[in-house]
Design a protein around this nucleic acid. Structure first.
Length: 747
DNA sequence: TACAAGCGCCTTTTT
DNA sequence: GGCGCTTGTA
């Protein structure tokens, strides 16, 4: 215990009653929590299954477990409850499903599933999607759920018109019929269950835990707060750890006032402040404080460090995003040539859309990188398809899954037939799958449709029978066989269909891995268990421990640290992000906190960059330096490439003109079609020299990478010259296609 | 019914 | 620049 400083030791030793730990960035928070738990286990002999520790990501949970194994031993750690809010809630709900109004095999609908459900509802209710975009409706509903408001409780005074009200009700009914929950439901249902004064299950829950610990407490929402309060109500041993300066999930319902008001709710709470930073150099800490201090509201505290100043923070002004990417990538390449481990490098940006240019620059220099977030493995079309089969087998009531795979791979069941099935489901309040059966019995379909639908029903029934006898991974394998998914891809026989096949084999592999994990902790490997695990992976959970640079959004970077960090895109409208509501100063504060999180991730060296012109979302914009840069203390920074504090909109700062005007192709909206003449930019029919043309366009030839609006990236196989050149190209998700060259972009 | 093409829409951050 | 819905054709 003598390795801990004074406040850390206090936080470990205070084992009775509410405890609030304000843990500044880099103040040894994880270490403190780990020691605290170890102390509870070893000194106070608390049974491990009576300790609940909530972390923000599965990765953080894994790391905490790993540390505890060293301190307390594997056998003990196995019985601890460690996990994210969502995974803990899912676990509790499976145990007490009936009390929560679910069956234990409930399915978790992700964003795409939820949107599909809502789109269908809008169609059924004949509501114009333009007036009520599914995403908008869902965001309204989620907001209600985050504040524990049911469909009956969101009146007009909360900005809920009767239509929204109705949609909320119908959506809830649809999920309930499908035995499905969304992310908010996991929390809300667990909270309702644990608060229920009458239910026996609730009493069990409330008596279950002796100690409850919550990490990243500044990012909890009302429902999560009520849940942990209920779970710790008996002993009041609730330990919360967080830093209000790092609260960055307001848009997801997180309420920074919860941590700030904790002492009001628990007037006897012991408060400990960890303010010594052990992570970063003094210059970086000074930069971080410069960024956070102007925030309107903060809990009073001061981060300090005993470290030396270290290198200055580099602030670089660049011409455009390509220039920025080249700067980042070549610096990383140099460091790599000197033998530095790329694992210690990270590049941050505000939005995912900024990653592409960085990727290209890194790839051009053969620098290995990994992108955290963006398109996940489990969101790939073929992987999601097979998961939907598995989900349907696990829970046939799940309409969203049935609708996705009823004609995948294509088996001749068209829109008409599906419509008929849905009508039947609607009329008789059946699940879509039951409605399939009903349609077949009634025999109102044409004979071809009847036959095909019956074949589908037989397929699902056969698989359902197999489900009882096989392990999940074996079942997945049978799905690939019996649906002919594998066969269809094999027949396509392109490099890309091979890639899809590989993804599917990887999916089967991930099921096997799950079975091994389950065996290791002595649990039964169930399909539900696997599907739940897949639904609740965070972006950082997929981060691999390999020697490569990590690219991620600042949000994903929370809780991580690296020796060297590049913080890119520090411009007004990008960071702070433009869509901010000017009437809400709290939103600007949150952007500021986000910048603070970014800066405090770096241990040794921080590089910040901003540019004058940026292409984002297909628009070219002239950007001023982020206001947050002006808050960096001049003494700790060194500038490169000059500085443009506030260029006027639409003009360059005369001191730093770009060396060449942006190419015309950068103005898609201003000059549509200027470079879009078929044959001019993309294809030269008679000469296949790979000489880039003046405009930066490239001639197409076999073997070249191209991208298509719908099919994504692919490879050119053949080019058919002519006035209207045609190209045969292969696309990973769609196979080989013949496409007019004008619809292809190189790269 | 399947597929290619056309068109309009959006566009933060994520469990 | 990407996605999903609609339209036209085989």
């Amino acid at each position: 215990m003598d390795e801990l400083n004074q406040p850390q030791a206090e936080a470990v030793a205070h084992t009775n009653g509410p405890l609030l730990i304000f843990a500044g960035a880099g103040s040894g928070k994880t270490r403190t929590i780990t020691y605290r738990i170890a102390n509870l286990l070893a000194t106070h002999h608390v049974a491990p299954y009576r300790i609940l520790a909530v972390t923000f990501t599965n990765k953080a949970a894994g790391e905490m477990r790993a540390r505890l194994v060293k301190l307390a031993g594997e056998d003990i750690v196995r019985d601890l409850w460690v996990g994210t809010f969502h995974s803990i809630c899912a676990r509790l709900l499976r145990r007490h499903a009936v009390d929560a109004g679910l069956s234990p095999n409930f399915v978790i609908y992700d964003d795409a599933d939820q949107k599909a459900v809502m789109s269908r509802i809008l169609k059924e209710q004949a509501i114009d999607e333009k007036m009520y975009p599914p995403r908008f409706v869902l965001s309204k509903i989620h907001k209600e759920k985050q504040e524990a408001k049911g469909p009956g409780e969101s009146g007009r005074e909360r900005g809920f018109d009767p239509t929204l009200q109705m949609l909320y009700e119908v959506y809830e009914r649809a999920l309930s019929l499908a035995n499905a929950v969304d992310f908010e439901d996991l929390l809300l249902k667990a909270m309702r269950l644990s608060e229920d004064p009458k239910s026996g299950a609730a009493r069990l829950l409330r008596e279950r835990f002796e100690h409850v610990l919550v990490d990243e407490f500044q990012d909890t929402n009302q429902v999560q707060y009520r849940l942990v309060r209920a779970l710790s109500a008996r002993t009041r041993n609730l330990c919360v750890v967080g830093d209000d300066d790092q609260s960055i999930y307001r848009w997801r319902g997180a309420d920074v006032r919860i941590i700030r008001g904790f002492q009001t709710d628990f007037s006897d709470a012991k408060v400990v402040k960890l303010e010594q930073n052990y992570r970063s150099t003094a210059n970086i800490v000074a930069a971080a404080l410069g960024v956070i201090e102007p925030a309107l509201q903060r809990e009073p505290k001061e981060l300090w460090t005993a470290e030396g100043p270290g290198a200055k923070v580099t602030v670089r002004y660049g011409q455009d995003e390509r220039d920025e990417a080249a700067w980042v990538a070549s610096a990383i390449q140099r460091a790599r040539n000197e033998g530095v481990d790329l694992k210690e490098f990270a590049v941050f940006y505000r939005v995912h859309a900024q990653s592409r240019v960085l990727e290209e620059a890194l790839r051009a220099r053969s620098v290995p990188y990994q992108i955290i977030g963006g398109m996940k493995f489990f969101e790939r079309a073929e992987v999601k398809d097979v998961l939907c089969y598995l989900r349907l087998l696990d829970n046939p009531a799940s309409d969203a899954d049935l609708l996705r795979i009823i004609n995948v791979p294509t088996r001749g069941i068209g829109g008409k037939t599906v419509e008929k099935v849905l009508e039947t489901a609607q009329e008789s309040t059946l699940s879509a799958y039951d409605a399939v059966e009903a349609c077949l019995t009634r025999g109102e379909l044409g004979s071809a449709a009847q036959k095909k639908l019956a074949a589908f029903r037989d397929l699902i029934e056969e698989l359902r029978a197999l489900k009882e006898q096989l392990r999940p991974s074996e079942l997945a394998d049978r799905v690939l066989e019996l649906t002919q998914y594998r066969e269809v891809l094999r027949n396509a026989d392109t490099a890309e269909s091979d890639a899809r096949l590989e993804n599917l084999e990887e999916l089967v592999g991930s099921l096997q891995e799950y079975e091994q994990d389950a065996a290791a902790v002595g649990e039964e490997a169930t399909l539900s268990g696997y599907l739940e695990r897949v639904s609740l992976v965070a972006a950082v959970d997929t981060m691999r421990d390999v020697p490569s640079v990590s690219l991620m959004t600042v949000h994903s970077a929370k809780g991580l640290e690296f020796d060297t960090v590049w913080l890119t895109g520090m411009e007004e409208e990008v960071f702070p992000y433009k869509g901010l509501d000017a009437s809400e100063p709290e939103e600007l504060d949150e952007e500021r906190r986000l910048a603070y999180v970014a800066v405090t991730r770096a241990r040794q060296k921080l590089n910040i960059s901003h540019v004058g012109i940026r292409n984002l979302f297909g628009q070219t914009r002239y950007l001023a330096a982020s206001r947050f840069l002006a808050d960096l203390p001049e003494a700790v920074i060194e500038r490169q490439g000059g500085f443009s504090p506030r260029p006027r909109l639409g003009s360059f700062n005369p001191a730093y003109p770009p060396s060449r005007p942006p190419p015309a192709s950068r103005y898609p909206s201003g000059r549509p079609g200027a470079l879009r003449q078929p044959g001019e930019r993309f294809v030269d029919a008679d000469a296949f020299d790979d000489v880039p043309s003046e405009e930066g366009g490239v001639r197409l030839r076999p073997g070249m990478k191209v991208s298509h609006k719908r099919f994504g990236r692919g490879i050119v196989e053949q080019v058919e010259p002519g006035d209207n050149p045609k190209v045969t190209a292969r696309f990973p998700r769609f196979g080989t296609k013949q496409i007019l060259a004008e619809f292809l972009q190189p790269g």
